[in-house]
């Protein structure tokens, strides 16, 4: 199998995108213990705002990118205020918070659909070509071809994880986040403004999700209100495989899903690539529900 190395490269570059998306999911779960299924809508927001700025307002990418991330961050905060906080204050079950996030996602996607039509004459739009380097770098000796933007995504994903780790482990606000994650009531007694920590968590998750959406748009050019659907299940699988609430786990989970898919295809099973992913998920859930990197429920932090 002389294409093995190329498949490794393929898996890594796909995994980078999955991981970046999964990180935001994992961050919210690790602090709040709820699954934010509207994260896919935040992802879409990043691509949508980025495209709007580049295509309609003719902004350069270095302006569009941070603005798109911030916009996604604010949508994410909005989710906290609309879909999560009211339910949490009422003491509703985590399940109903999950359901409310589904409702919110539905609403955001529908609103995006309304916005798309007058802007782009339909529900499909494209980033202009050549915005990012997409000519492959050829390594003849190994018969490898590497697309630069994919590697850039890999670097950005890793950088964001390291930044996130630093923020959570080394800063005061990170300390507060961990305290809230450990026990909300104790944290409140210690004088931590729990509400503010939640808002910050959602904002950070939104930044990550927005960045993922924007990068996804830049690589594949194609943006629709529905691109969140493409990654929602994959991202979910990635964080469960990695361990719900574990940030490193989300990273590893993303690469793992990409690797499973890629090598299922490489051995000729492209029909069953997702069956393999879900099959493994199934087995893992039964054997080790907390995932590869997750801690058990009581020590989650």
């Amino acid at each position: 199998m002389d294409s093995f190395l190329q498949q490794v490269v393929n898996a890594v570059s796909l995994g980078a995108i999955y991981s970046l998306f999964a990180l935001g999911y994992a961050l919210v779960f690790s602090i709040l213990g709820v699954l934010n299924l509207a994260h896919s809508a935040v992802f879409m927001t990043g691509a949508f705002v980025g495209l709007l700025l580049v295509d309609k307002l003719h902004q350069p990418l270095w302006i569009a990118a941070p603005l798109a991330m911030i916009a996604a961050g604010f949508v994410s905060i909005l989710l906290e205020f609309v879909a999560f906080r009211p339910l949490r204050q009422r003491g509703a079950a985590r399940m109903s918070q999950l359901i409310s996030s589904i409702g919110a996602a539905l609403l955001i996607v529908n609103l995006a659909q309304l916005a798309f039509k007058p802007l782009w004459g339909g529900t499909e739009a494209y980033f202009p070509q050549g915005l990012v380097p997409d000519q492959p770098i050829v390594i003849e000796a190994l018969s490898l071809r590497i697309v630069p933007i994919r590697m850039i995504i890999l670097v950005i994903a890793l950088a964001l994880v390291i930044a996130l780790q630093y923020l959570v482990m080394r800063t005061r606000i990170g300390q507060q986040m961990r305290a809230v994650a450990f026990n909300q009531r104790t944290a409140a007694l210690l004088g931590i403004n729990v509400g503010r920590v939640y808002v910050l968590t959602f904002f950070l998750a939104g930044l990550l999700g927005g960045a993922a959406g924007l990068l996804y748009g830049l690589v594949f050019l194609n943006v629709t209100p529905f691109i969140g659907d493409d990654v929602a299940l994959v991202g979910l699988t990635a964080i469960v495989l990695g361990g719900l609430g574990s940030i490193n786990g989300a990273l590893v989970g993303g690469f793992l899903v990409a690797a499973i898919q890629t090598f299922s295809i490489a051995i000729g099973g492209s029909n069953y690539k997702n069956a393999v992913v879900f099959g493994l998920l199934f087995v893992l859930l039964l054997a080790r529900p907390q995932g590869l990197f997750g801690q058990s429920e009581s020590t989650r932090a």
């Binding site: 190329q6 796909l14 995108i17 996804y216």
Partner: peptide
């Protein structure tokens, strides 16, 4: 094969 909504076809193409 691939599924609707797939965006990365590198694995299939490499194969």
């Amino acid at each position: 094969t691939f599924a609707r909504g797939d965006v990365d076809f590198n694995a299939q193409l490499t194969q």
